[in-house]
Amino acid sequence: MSATLDDKLLSKYYDEGCVIEVPGRAFPIEDIYTMEDAENHVDEAINKVLEIHASRVPGNILVFLTGQDEIDRAINEVTRKIDPPESALLLPLHGKLSEDDVKLVFMPMANNERRKIIFSTNVAETSITIDGIRYVIDSGMVKEVMWDSKRHIRVLKIGYTTQSSIKQRRGRAGRTSAGKCCHLYAYDTYQSLEVCSRAEILCIQPSIAVLKLKYLDIVDDIRKFDWLEPPSDNSLQETVKCLTWLGALDFKTGKLTNLGRNMAKLGLEPMLSVMILTGQRLDCLNHILALAGMLSVVQNIWWRNKDDQSKQLSDEIRASFIQDTDIGGDYIILLRIFLEWYALGDNKERRKVWCLKHMISWKSMKMANNVVRELAYQIDPTFKIHFT
Protein backbone atom coordinates (compact mmCIF):
# COMPACT_ATOMS: atom_id res chain seq x y z
CA MET A 1 0.00 0.00 0.00
CA SER A 2 2.77 2.44 0.92
CA ALA A 3 6.54 2.44 1.15
CA THR A 4 6.45 4.82 4.13
CA LEU A 5 3.69 3.13 6.14
CA ASP A 6 4.47 1.96 9.68
CA ASP A 7 3.29 -1.61 9.14
CA LYS A 8 4.14 -2.74 12.69
CA LEU A 9 1.90 -0.06 14.21
CA LEU A 10 -0.99 -0.94 11.90
CA SER A 11 -0.58 -4.67 12.46
CA LYS A 12 -0.63 -4.19 16.25
CA TYR A 13 -3.78 -2.03 16.05
CA TYR A 14 -5.58 -4.80 14.14
CA ASP A 15 -4.65 -7.53 16.64
CA GLU A 16 -1.36 -8.54 15.00
CA GLY A 17 -2.80 -8.60 11.49
CA CYS A 18 -0.77 -10.23 8.73
CA VAL A 19 1.67 -7.97 6.83
CA ILE A 20 2.45 -8.81 3.20
CA GLU A 21 5.49 -7.15 1.65
CA VAL A 22 5.82 -6.76 -2.12
CA PRO A 23 9.34 -5.50 -2.91
CA GLY A 24 9.76 -3.15 -5.85
CA ARG A 25 12.42 -3.44 -8.51
CA ALA A 26 15.33 -1.02 -8.37
CA PHE A 27 18.88 -0.71 -9.61
CA PRO A 28 21.75 -0.83 -7.08
CA ILE A 29 22.42 2.40 -5.17
CA GLU A 30 25.64 3.33 -3.39
CA ASP A 31 25.16 5.28 -0.14
CA ILE A 32 27.76 7.89 0.82
CA TYR A 33 27.53 9.46 4.29
CA THR A 34 29.59 12.31 5.74
CA MET A 35 31.73 11.93 8.85
CA GLU A 36 29.80 14.73 10.56
CA ASP A 37 26.46 16.43 9.98
CA ALA A 38 26.58 19.44 7.67
CA GLU A 39 26.64 22.76 9.54
CA ASN A 40 24.79 24.38 6.64
CA HIS A 41 22.99 21.86 4.45
CA VAL A 42 22.43 24.34 1.60
CA ASP A 43 26.13 25.22 1.32
CA GLU A 44 27.11 21.55 1.53
CA ALA A 45 24.59 20.66 -1.18
CA ILE A 46 26.03 23.36 -3.45
CA ASN A 47 29.59 22.09 -2.90
CA LYS A 48 28.56 18.50 -3.58
CA VAL A 49 26.81 19.48 -6.83
CA LEU A 50 29.93 21.29 -8.04
CA GLU A 51 32.13 18.36 -7.01
CA ILE A 52 30.03 15.81 -8.91
CA HIS A 53 29.75 18.02 -11.97
CA ALA A 54 33.51 18.63 -12.04
CA SER A 55 34.11 14.85 -12.14
CA ARG A 56 32.56 14.81 -15.65
CA VAL A 57 30.87 11.47 -14.87
CA PRO A 58 27.55 11.56 -16.78
CA GLY A 59 24.16 11.49 -15.08
CA ASN A 60 21.57 13.96 -13.85
CA ILE A 61 21.53 15.18 -10.24
CA LEU A 62 18.54 15.53 -7.89
CA VAL A 63 19.06 17.67 -4.77
CA PHE A 64 16.60 17.63 -1.85
CA LEU A 65 16.22 20.92 0.05
CA THR A 66 13.39 22.25 2.23
CA GLY A 67 11.79 25.13 0.32
CA GLN A 68 11.80 27.69 -2.46
CA ASP A 69 14.16 30.11 -0.70
CA GLU A 70 16.84 27.43 -0.28
CA ILE A 71 16.32 26.23 -3.84
CA ASP A 72 16.63 29.74 -5.30
CA ARG A 73 19.82 30.40 -3.31
CA ALA A 74 21.37 27.10 -4.39
CA ILE A 75 20.56 27.70 -8.07
CA ASN A 76 22.01 31.22 -7.91
CA GLU A 77 25.25 29.98 -6.34
CA VAL A 78 25.71 27.01 -8.66
CA THR A 79 24.94 29.18 -11.71
CA ARG A 80 27.66 31.59 -10.62
CA LYS A 81 30.29 28.91 -9.94
CA ILE A 82 29.64 26.10 -12.43
CA ASP A 83 32.17 25.68 -15.24
CA PRO A 84 31.38 25.88 -18.06
CA PRO A 85 27.95 27.53 -17.48
CA GLU A 86 26.34 25.95 -20.55
CA SER A 87 27.30 22.43 -19.42
CA ALA A 88 24.27 22.06 -17.13
CA LEU A 89 20.60 22.97 -16.96
CA LEU A 90 19.59 24.03 -13.44
CA LEU A 91 15.91 23.55 -12.59
CA PRO A 92 13.74 24.07 -9.49
CA LEU A 93 10.95 21.70 -8.45
CA HIS A 94 8.45 22.82 -5.82
CA GLY A 95 4.76 23.55 -5.38
CA LYS A 96 4.84 27.17 -6.53
CA LEU A 97 6.00 26.52 -10.10
CA SER A 98 3.90 27.08 -13.19
CA GLU A 99 2.87 24.05 -15.26
CA ASP A 100 5.38 24.93 -17.98
CA ASP A 101 8.25 25.09 -15.47
CA VAL A 102 7.31 21.68 -14.06
CA LYS A 103 7.28 20.18 -17.56
CA LEU A 104 10.92 21.23 -18.03
CA VAL A 105 11.93 18.91 -15.18
CA PHE A 106 10.53 15.84 -16.95
CA MET A 107 11.39 16.83 -20.51
CA PRO A 108 14.18 14.68 -22.04
CA MET A 109 17.38 16.56 -22.84
CA ALA A 110 17.98 17.07 -26.56
CA ASN A 111 21.73 17.06 -25.94
CA ASN A 112 22.80 14.23 -23.63
CA GLU A 113 26.13 15.95 -23.00
CA ARG A 114 24.34 18.62 -20.97
CA ARG A 115 23.64 17.60 -17.38
CA LYS A 116 20.28 18.31 -15.75
CA ILE A 117 20.53 19.40 -12.08
CA ILE A 118 17.21 19.56 -10.23
CA PHE A 119 16.79 21.26 -6.85
CA SER A 120 13.61 19.97 -5.23
CA THR A 121 11.54 19.93 -2.07
CA ASN A 122 10.11 16.63 -0.84
CA VAL A 123 7.54 16.69 -3.69
CA ALA A 124 10.01 14.50 -5.62
CA GLU A 125 10.17 11.83 -2.91
CA THR A 126 7.40 9.58 -4.19
CA SER A 127 5.20 8.74 -7.17
CA ILE A 128 7.35 10.40 -9.83
CA THR A 129 10.25 9.23 -11.96
CA ILE A 130 12.70 11.68 -13.51
CA ASP A 131 14.67 9.95 -16.25
CA GLY A 132 18.43 9.93 -16.05
CA ILE A 133 18.84 10.65 -12.32
CA ARG A 134 22.13 9.04 -11.30
CA TYR A 135 22.95 11.13 -8.23
CA VAL A 136 20.76 12.11 -5.30
CA ILE A 137 22.07 14.69 -2.83
CA ASP A 138 19.99 14.49 0.33
CA SER A 139 20.09 17.28 2.92
CA GLY A 140 18.07 15.06 5.25
CA MET A 141 15.93 18.07 6.10
CA VAL A 142 12.23 18.80 5.60
CA LYS A 143 9.80 21.63 6.25
CA GLU A 144 6.73 20.34 8.11
CA VAL A 145 3.46 21.78 9.38
CA MET A 146 3.30 21.84 13.17
CA TRP A 147 0.77 23.20 15.65
CA ASP A 148 1.84 26.18 17.76
CA SER A 149 -0.21 25.75 20.94
CA LYS A 150 0.70 29.22 22.23
CA ARG A 151 -0.47 31.12 19.14
CA HIS A 152 -3.13 28.55 18.14
CA ILE A 153 -1.95 28.45 14.54
CA ARG A 154 -0.16 26.07 12.18
CA VAL A 155 3.49 26.90 11.57
CA LEU A 156 6.19 25.55 9.28
CA LYS A 157 9.30 24.19 10.99
CA ILE A 158 12.52 22.82 9.49
CA GLY A 159 14.03 19.66 10.93
CA TYR A 160 15.35 16.22 10.07
CA THR A 161 13.06 13.96 8.08
CA THR A 162 12.48 10.24 8.78
CA GLN A 163 14.27 7.07 7.71
CA SER A 164 11.37 6.08 5.47
CA SER A 165 11.48 9.42 3.65
CA ILE A 166 15.24 9.13 3.20
CA LYS A 167 14.76 5.68 1.65
CA GLN A 168 12.27 7.21 -0.77
CA ARG A 169 14.70 9.99 -1.68
CA ARG A 170 17.64 7.64 -2.31
CA GLY A 171 15.37 5.48 -4.44
CA ARG A 172 15.10 8.27 -7.02
CA ALA A 173 18.71 7.46 -8.00
CA GLY A 174 17.94 3.84 -8.81
CA ARG A 175 14.78 4.11 -10.86
CA THR A 176 16.26 3.82 -14.34
CA SER A 177 19.93 2.91 -13.71
CA ALA A 178 22.49 2.32 -10.97
CA GLY A 179 23.15 5.43 -8.91
CA LYS A 180 24.62 7.10 -5.84
CA CYS A 181 23.00 8.86 -2.88
CA CYS A 182 25.15 11.46 -1.12
CA HIS A 183 23.80 12.02 2.40
CA LEU A 184 24.85 15.33 3.96
CA TYR A 185 24.83 13.84 7.46
CA ALA A 186 26.49 11.01 9.36
CA TYR A 187 25.21 7.43 9.34
CA ASP A 188 24.76 7.62 13.13
CA THR A 189 22.39 10.54 12.58
CA TYR A 190 20.38 8.49 10.11
CA GLN A 191 20.16 5.63 12.62
CA SER A 192 18.84 8.01 15.30
CA LEU A 193 15.95 9.33 13.18
CA GLU A 194 12.35 8.22 13.57
CA VAL A 195 11.53 5.30 11.30
CA CYS A 196 8.30 6.80 9.93
CA SER A 197 6.74 10.23 9.88
CA ARG A 198 4.58 11.11 12.85
CA ALA A 199 0.87 10.96 12.22
CA GLU A 200 -0.55 14.36 11.30
CA ILE A 201 -2.92 14.21 14.25
CA LEU A 202 0.12 14.28 16.56
CA CYS A 203 1.52 17.40 14.88
CA ILE A 204 -1.58 19.57 14.70
CA GLN A 205 -4.60 20.36 16.83
CA PRO A 206 -7.12 17.52 16.19
CA SER A 207 -10.11 19.88 16.00
CA ILE A 208 -11.73 18.36 12.90
CA ALA A 209 -11.46 14.82 14.30
CA VAL A 210 -12.96 15.88 17.63
CA LEU A 211 -15.88 17.64 15.92
CA LYS A 212 -16.56 14.57 13.78
CA LEU A 213 -16.46 12.20 16.77
CA LYS A 214 -18.87 14.44 18.67
CA TYR A 215 -21.15 14.76 15.64
CA LEU A 216 -21.31 10.99 15.08
CA ASP A 217 -21.86 10.48 18.82
CA ILE A 218 -19.24 7.73 18.82
CA VAL A 219 -17.78 8.57 22.22
CA ASP A 220 -18.63 11.13 24.87
CA ASP A 221 -15.13 11.46 26.32
CA ILE A 222 -12.71 11.86 23.40
CA ARG A 223 -9.80 10.75 25.58
CA LYS A 224 -11.35 7.27 25.69
CA PHE A 225 -11.60 6.89 21.91
CA ASP A 226 -9.53 4.04 20.46
CA TRP A 227 -7.07 6.16 18.46
CA LEU A 228 -4.50 4.50 16.21
CA GLU A 229 -2.00 7.02 17.59
CA PRO A 230 -3.64 9.03 20.39
CA PRO A 231 -3.00 12.79 20.64
CA SER A 232 -1.60 13.99 23.95
CA ASP A 233 -3.98 14.93 26.76
CA ASN A 234 -2.72 18.51 26.51
CA SER A 235 -3.55 18.63 22.79
CA LEU A 236 -7.07 17.31 23.39
CA GLN A 237 -7.62 19.77 26.24
CA GLU A 238 -6.49 22.68 24.05
CA THR A 239 -8.81 21.48 21.28
CA VAL A 240 -11.85 21.33 23.58
CA LYS A 241 -10.96 24.75 24.97
CA CYS A 242 -10.71 26.25 21.46
CA LEU A 243 -13.97 24.67 20.25
CA THR A 244 -15.77 25.86 23.38
CA TRP A 245 -14.46 29.40 22.87
CA LEU A 246 -15.71 29.35 19.26
CA GLY A 247 -19.15 28.23 20.42
CA ALA A 248 -18.98 24.76 18.87
CA LEU A 249 -19.19 22.98 22.25
CA ASP A 250 -21.48 23.78 25.15
CA PHE A 251 -19.50 25.22 28.06
CA LYS A 252 -21.26 23.13 30.71
CA THR A 253 -22.03 19.81 29.00
CA GLY A 254 -19.30 19.61 26.35
CA LYS A 255 -21.96 18.61 23.80
CA LEU A 256 -22.10 19.99 20.27
CA THR A 257 -24.08 23.19 19.80
CA ASN A 258 -26.06 23.93 16.63
CA LEU A 259 -23.04 25.88 15.40
CA GLY A 260 -20.80 22.92 16.21
CA ARG A 261 -23.00 20.53 14.23
CA ASN A 262 -22.86 22.80 11.19
CA MET A 263 -19.09 23.08 11.58
CA ALA A 264 -18.75 19.29 11.72
CA LYS A 265 -20.73 18.95 8.48
CA LEU A 266 -18.29 21.27 6.69
CA GLY A 267 -15.27 19.29 7.90
CA LEU A 268 -12.94 22.31 7.77
CA GLU A 269 -10.58 23.97 10.22
CA PRO A 270 -12.81 25.44 12.97
CA MET A 271 -11.76 29.06 12.35
CA LEU A 272 -12.55 28.69 8.65
CA SER A 273 -15.89 27.01 9.37
CA VAL A 274 -16.95 29.83 11.68
CA MET A 275 -15.92 32.39 9.06
CA ILE A 276 -18.03 30.69 6.36
CA LEU A 277 -21.08 30.16 8.57
CA THR A 278 -20.89 33.77 9.78
CA GLY A 279 -20.66 34.92 6.16
CA GLN A 280 -23.80 32.96 5.39
CA ARG A 281 -25.62 34.58 8.30
CA LEU A 282 -24.51 38.09 7.29
CA ASP A 283 -25.43 37.55 3.62
CA CYS A 284 -21.88 37.86 2.26
CA LEU A 285 -21.27 34.18 1.61
CA ASN A 286 -19.96 34.61 -1.95
CA HIS A 287 -17.01 36.73 -0.89
CA ILE A 288 -16.29 34.61 2.18
CA LEU A 289 -16.20 31.45 0.04
CA ALA A 290 -13.82 33.17 -2.38
CA LEU A 291 -11.54 34.08 0.52
CA ALA A 292 -11.75 30.53 1.92
CA GLY A 293 -10.74 29.13 -1.46
CA MET A 294 -7.76 31.45 -1.69
CA LEU A 295 -6.65 30.67 1.86
CA SER A 296 -6.52 26.98 0.92
CA VAL A 297 -3.77 27.71 -1.65
CA VAL A 298 -2.19 30.82 -0.11
CA GLN A 299 1.23 29.15 0.28
CA ASN A 300 1.49 28.54 -3.47
CA ILE A 301 -0.38 31.45 -5.02
CA TRP A 302 2.62 33.49 -6.21
CA TRP A 303 5.27 32.25 -8.60
CA ARG A 304 8.41 34.09 -9.52
CA ASN A 305 11.81 33.45 -11.01
CA LYS A 306 14.89 33.32 -8.85
CA ASP A 307 16.38 36.69 -9.87
CA ASP A 308 16.01 39.84 -7.74
CA GLN A 309 14.28 41.77 -10.54
CA SER A 310 11.54 39.15 -10.75
CA LYS A 311 11.05 39.22 -6.98
CA GLN A 312 10.73 43.00 -7.01
CA LEU A 313 8.19 42.86 -9.85
CA SER A 314 6.17 40.25 -7.94
CA ASP A 315 6.07 42.50 -4.86
CA GLU A 316 4.94 45.47 -6.97
CA ILE A 317 2.15 43.42 -8.56
CA ARG A 318 1.01 42.27 -5.13
CA ALA A 319 0.85 45.87 -3.90
CA SER A 320 -1.15 46.92 -6.99
CA PHE A 321 -4.17 44.96 -5.78
CA ILE A 322 -4.73 47.41 -2.91
CA GLN A 323 -3.63 50.68 -4.51
CA ASP A 324 -7.13 52.03 -5.10
CA THR A 325 -8.66 51.04 -1.78
CA ASP A 326 -8.45 52.35 1.77
CA ILE A 327 -8.50 48.79 3.09
CA GLY A 328 -5.25 46.84 3.04
CA GLY A 329 -3.98 43.50 4.27
CA ASP A 330 -3.35 40.04 2.84
CA TYR A 331 -7.02 38.99 2.94
CA ILE A 332 -8.07 41.93 0.76
CA ILE A 333 -5.28 41.13 -1.71
CA LEU A 334 -6.36 37.48 -1.92
CA LEU A 335 -10.02 38.41 -2.36
CA ARG A 336 -9.33 40.93 -5.12
CA ILE A 337 -7.09 38.46 -6.95
CA PHE A 338 -9.88 35.90 -7.02
CA LEU A 339 -12.53 38.44 -8.07
CA GLU A 340 -10.42 39.70 -10.99
CA TRP A 341 -9.58 36.16 -12.11
CA TYR A 342 -13.18 34.98 -11.75
CA ALA A 343 -14.52 37.97 -13.74
CA LEU A 344 -12.69 36.66 -16.83
CA GLY A 345 -15.31 33.91 -17.11
CA ASP A 346 -14.65 30.34 -18.19
CA ASN A 347 -12.20 31.36 -20.91
CA LYS A 348 -9.17 29.23 -19.98
CA GLU A 349 -6.70 31.08 -22.21
CA ARG A 350 -7.71 34.53 -20.93
CA ARG A 351 -7.32 33.34 -17.35
CA LYS A 352 -3.92 31.80 -18.11
CA VAL A 353 -2.68 35.00 -19.73
CA TRP A 354 -3.93 37.01 -16.75
CA CYS A 355 -2.09 34.69 -14.33
CA LEU A 356 1.12 34.96 -16.34
CA LYS A 357 0.88 38.76 -16.41
CA HIS A 358 0.35 38.98 -12.64
CA MET A 359 2.88 36.23 -11.74
CA ILE A 360 0.15 34.13 -10.14
CA SER A 361 -0.03 30.34 -10.26
CA TRP A 362 -2.68 29.16 -12.72
CA LYS A 363 -2.80 25.77 -11.00
CA SER A 364 -3.42 27.37 -7.59
CA MET A 365 -6.24 29.52 -8.97
CA LYS A 366 -7.93 26.44 -10.43
CA MET A 367 -7.63 24.69 -7.08
CA ALA A 368 -9.04 27.71 -5.23
CA ASN A 369 -11.99 27.84 -7.63
CA ASN A 370 -12.67 24.13 -7.08
CA VAL A 371 -12.64 24.67 -3.31
CA VAL A 372 -15.13 27.53 -3.66
CA ARG A 373 -17.50 25.37 -5.72
CA GLU A 374 -17.22 22.39 -3.36
CA LEU A 375 -17.86 24.51 -0.27
CA ALA A 376 -20.86 26.18 -1.91
CA TYR A 377 -22.31 22.77 -2.77
CA GLN A 378 -21.75 21.50 0.79
CA ILE A 379 -23.65 24.44 2.23
CA ASP A 380 -26.47 24.35 -0.31
CA PRO A 381 -26.50 22.24 -3.53
CA THR A 382 -28.66 24.91 -5.19
CA PHE A 383 -26.39 27.82 -4.24
CA LYS A 384 -25.09 29.82 -7.22
CA ILE A 385 -21.78 31.68 -7.02
CA HIS A 386 -22.04 35.29 -8.14
CA PHE A 387 -20.23 38.54 -7.40
CA THR A 388 -21.53 42.09 -7.64
Rank of each mutant, 00 (worst) to 15 (best):
I332A: 10
H183N: 03
R25Y: 12
N60S: 09
F383W: 12
Q68R: 15
W354D: 14
E77I: 07
V195N: 03
V371N: 04
S149T: 00
L249N: 03
A290T: 01
T129K: 15
G293T: 03
W147L: 06
K366S: 07
N47K: 14
R151T: 13
L243A: 04
R318G: 14
S364K: 03
P58Q: 02
A74D: 00
A88M: 01
L211V: 08
T162A: 10
P84F: 13
K180I: 13
H152Q: 12
I75W: 00
I379M: 09
P23R: 14
W303K: 11
T126A: 13
L282F: 12
T4G: 03
G67N: 05
K103E: 15
D283F: 13
A173H: 03
L259F: 04
P85V: 02
L356E: 15
G345H: 08
A199G: 06
G171Q: 10
I52S: 05
E144P: 02
S149R: 08
V155T: 12
H152M: 13
C182W: 14
D37C: 14
K143D: 04
R351P: 02
I46P: 02
I333T: 05
E99F: 09
L62T: 00
I71A: 01
A292V: 07
I276L: 14
D326P: 10
I317T: 03
V123I: 15
A290M: 11
I276P: 07
V22S: 14
V49H: 07
E200D: 13
D37W: 10
I385D: 04
L266C: 15
S11I: 11
L344R: 11
G132M: 08
T129E: 01
R318M: 11
L282V: 03
R350G: 00
I317S: 08
T4Q: 07
P85L: 12
I201L: 01
V142D: 10
